[in-house]
């Protein structure tokens, strides 16, 4: 960078002309890096103010006692010690563990199976039609999808009415009001779990597998299932990796479902750590404690994501 004094020493007009010419000059200009920085500057300002600053605040808050108004008081690891003596928090850990272990396969396997089914259809036209049909549910905004599932689970809702209509009336249940079924009901929402985003990404991966490999497999008489296992699944590793990381990051984040559908209840049956963070901070005014919960969960998720990236990267190509 040019020292400031040097520019100032030059006559005003000529300094500006020089800068101007260099800024708009072609990609071989020696000052091209300035353009690079100018292009990313707006992004950096926005993420600095609205992403990194709150993230830093969140980490500071995790080690403090703070009600959101008075200055935070540093308490070291106090919040974390308190957390592990808090039965609601311990329960929330179990809930999110169950949700993640069940929820990640649910978010990946059905879309993959449907992607394979569509990929195996003969005609390009019917592939297009089915792809479109599975994308249509995306028109429902997230909160609308949740509210419709709230109706489905009501005592007189669609699920119980359906069970009655097909002669399984004895299975009718207060799905969200019974602590034994409430968490399962939240995890099971979205049946048959064919996420449009996952479906399209996996389908794109299958389409990108070179035709020669598939032809060679066909010539060798490789059956459908062994082909899926030996060729399709490993060939779309980049897609799996992205979707798996996105799932690890998004499944435990599910705050809106307990917030809208059950308010964490009945009792604490559907309290997840993120919901508990919201409840302690917004509901009880314990901002520091809430941020500590968020911070711990964040560390665990980062760890999982890093392990996952390392593991998949170490696979031979």
């Amino acid at each position: 960078m040019q020292p400031r004094g040097l520019t100032a020493a030059l006559p005003e007009t000529s300094a500006r002309t020089v800068t101007h010419r260099r800024l708009v000059s072609g990609p071989n200009s020696s000052r091209r890096w300035v353009i690079g920085y100018l292009f990313i500057l707006p992004t950096l300002v926005f993420v600095g103010v609205f992403s990194y600053y709150p993230a830093v605040k969140a980490m500071q808050g995790a080690f403090s006692n703070w009600n959101g108004f008075n200055p935070p008081v540093f308490v070291g690891l106090g919040n974390f010690v308190q957390m592990f003596q808090d039965p609601v928090f311990i329960a929330s850990l179990w809930h999110v563990l169950i949700w993640t272990v069940v929820g990640i396969p649910l978010s990946l396997i059905p879309p993959f199976l449907v992607a394979e089914m569509i990929f195996h259809l003969g005609k390009a036209r019917s592939q297009y039609v089915f792809r479109t049909m599975f994308i249509v549910p995306m028109v429902l905004p997230g909160f609308v999808g949740l509210l419709i599932w709230l109706f489905i689970y009501q005592p007189t809702g669609l699920l119980n009415q359906f069970l009655g209509a097909v002669g399984l009336g004895f299975l009718r249940h207060q799905w969200l009001a019974d602590p034994h079924t409430a968490l399962g009901a939240l995890i099971g929402m979205g049946f048959p779990w064919i996420g449009a985003f996952q479906l399209l990404v996996l389908y794109a991966g299958l389409q990108a597998i070179p035709m020669e490999i598939l032809d060679a497999a066909a010539v060798d008489g490789v059956g459908t299932w062994s082909r899926i296992r030996a060729i399709d699944i490993p060939m779309i590793r980049g897609q799996w990796k992205l979707l798996f990381i996105l799932a690890i990051v998004s499944v435990p984040q599910n705050l809106i479902a307990p917030l809208i559908l059950t308010d964490g209840g009945p009792g604490t049956a559907t309290v997840t750590p993120v919901f508990y963070m919201y409840q302690t901070a917004i509901g009880y005014g314990l901002y520091g404690y809430g941020m500590a919960i968020a911070f711990l969960l964040f560390l665990v998720m980062m760890l999982l994501a890093i392990v996952n990236m390392k593991y998949i990267q170490s696979q031979p190509d």
Binding site: I40, T43, L44, V47, F50, S51, Y52, Y53, P54, A55, K57, A58, G61, G68, V249, P252, Q253, L255, V274, M277, Y278, A281, I282, Y287, G290, M291, A294, F295, L297, F298, M301, M302, A305
Partner: peptide, 23 residues
């Protein structure tokens, strides 16, 4: 710089929710 921005993909919304609200 790219990693600084890309790293935000791993910063979940819930972590920044409350400080963002206060901000």
């Amino acid at each position: 710089l790219f990693m600084i921005i890309f790293g935000l993909l791993l910063v979940p919304g819930f972590l920044t929710l409350i400080p963002l609200f206060i901000e």
